[in-house]
Simulated scan of single mutants.
Amino acid sequence: MAASGVSLTELFVEFLKIGFFMFGGGYGGIALMYKELVEIKKWVSEEEFLELLGVAESTPGPIAINSATWIGYSLGGLPGSIIATIGVVMPAYLVIMAIVTSLKPYMGSDAVKIMFRGINAAVVALILYALIKVARSVLIASGGALNLVAVAIFVTAFILLYVGDQHPIVVILVSAAVSLLLKYGLGI
């Protein structure tokens, strides 16, 4: 049993399920993780989930694996982090092995192309859903008012990424530095 009351088996099964439906990589899985871990299971608060995303995104490695490792550790210590990480990674390994061994000859067929058209469209919806959930939590302060500092950093970061074609790492580091400067330099 993990320290939080969540068993290691529950942790493994939940992340295995998340891993099987995380089409589009970690970003597509953010919506699924949020729904399962915050809203349904209530293993993680919304605030903890947002902190997790910040850490998972700014550390090396795929966001899904980083997230599973972080949540697994917070719910079950080192064994929990290992179990959750294996759970989220195993489906991708199994699916890739299945594709390589059995679907490869059919990848050019119309049926497979049509199937992936549907999967890809759903992945865009998952990413948009995750964006809306996270944006609401980050950009709107308690009480419903816009968090103007967060909105300004968001808009600037988006412009730097989309228009300025800046590297995401540079944008993350600059955004963190600006936030620190605003808080500790200007008191905002």
Score class of each variant (00 low, 15 high):
T156M: 13
L128M: 02
T101E: 04
F49L: 09
P168H: 06
F20A: 15
A92F: 06
L94C: 05
A135F: 14
A150E: 08
A84P: 06
E46W: 01
Y162D: 14
A92Q: 04
M115Y: 08
T59W: 04
S81K: 10
S175H: 05
A135I: 05
A56N: 07
E10W: 06
T85N: 11
M97F: 08
K113V: 08
G187E: 09
F158I: 11
Y162E: 11
E10L: 03
A177L: 07
Y184M: 02
S175Q: 03
F158Q: 01
E36Q: 12
S74K: 15
E47S: 12
I188T: 00
G80K: 00
F158D: 02
G19I: 11
I63D: 04
L78W: 00
V38E: 06
F154C: 08
L103K: 03
I159Q: 11
P91M: 06
I86S: 04
V171Q: 00
E51I: 10
A111C: 03
I188V: 15
A150Q: 11
I159P: 13
I159N: 13
F23K: 10
E51M: 07
V138F: 14
H167K: 13
V151M: 14
K41M: 07
G118M: 07
S67L: 08
L139G: 10
A64W: 11
G143I: 11
L32T: 01
V174F: 00
S67G: 15
T101N: 09
I96S: 00
V112H: 00
L148V: 15
D165F: 07
E39L: 07
M1T: 11
V134C: 13
V95Q: 06
V149N: 12
M90K: 05
L128I: 01
A157G: 10
E14N: 05
I99T: 02
F21Q: 01
A121L: 11
A31Y: 00
G25P: 11
S4P: 09
A152N: 09
I71T: 02
A68E: 06
A150Y: 14
L11W: 04
L161F: 00
K41N: 12
F158A: 14
L50A: 12
T156V: 13
L139Q: 08
S45N: 01
L161T: 05
K183Q: 13
R117T: 14
I119A: 09
I71N: 01
L160C: 12
G187F: 00
A157S: 15
F116Q: 06
P60V: 13
L131W: 07
D165G: 08
F15E: 06
G77M: 02
I18C: 10
L52H: 03
D110V: 15
G19H: 03
G29Y: 12
I188M: 09
A64V: 07
I82G: 09
F15T: 05
L53M: 15
G24D: 07
G76M: 00
S137F: 10
A111W: 04
T101H: 05
I40H: 10
L182K: 05
Q166N: 07
A177P: 08
T69V: 01
L173K: 01
K35Q: 14
G54N: 15
S7L: 00
E47D: 06
I65E: 01
N66L: 01
M33T: 10
Y162T: 12
F23T: 04
F15I: 06
I96N: 01
M107S: 02
V163A: 07
P62G: 15
L52N: 05
A145S: 10
V123N: 07
